[in-house]
């Protein structure tokens, strides 16, 4: 296994995540896809840390930070989802077009 293998894997994961964000209809599925993108990026960091600079732990440290931030963001996202559900009883992204003027 080389660096390239892992990078391709994380790129694939990221792509799947992007697809999920753009094409899924359920809001929760969209949130999950966002998390997937986060994890793809984390995998990248760890890969670089392991293959290129095994002597220090900066990559892992950054990953910890990203996980924390992702958790916070998930909280906010879920709060929004709950608010939307309470107001519209509907979690279909296609039906949410309030940004339209």
């Amino acid at each position: 296994m080389t660096l390239a293998h892992v990078l391709i894997l994380s790129a694939l994961l990221f792509a799947i995540g992007v697809y999920g964000v753009l094409a899924r209809r359920s809001l929760i599925a969209i949130l999950m896809s966002v998390e997937l993108m986060f994890n793809a990026a984390n995998l990248n960091f760890v890969a670089f840390n392991h293959f290129l600079h095994p002597d220090n732990l900066w990559g892992h440290g950054i990953v910890l930070l990203v996980i924390t931030v992702a958790a916070a963001e998930a909280v906010v996202g879920l709060a929004l989802v709950i608010a939307i559900y309470r107001n519209t009883q509907n979690l279909n992204a296609e039906d949410l077009h309030l940004l339209h003027d």
């Binding site: 964000v21 753009l22 094409a23 969209i30 992204a93 296609e94 949410l96 077009h97 309030l98 940004l99 339209h100 003027d101």
Partner: peptide
């Protein structure tokens, strides 16, 4: 393109 849907914008 002009719908209010976030996903379209994101696309």
């Amino acid at each position: 393109e002009r719908s209010g849907r976030v996903q379209s914008y994101l696309m």
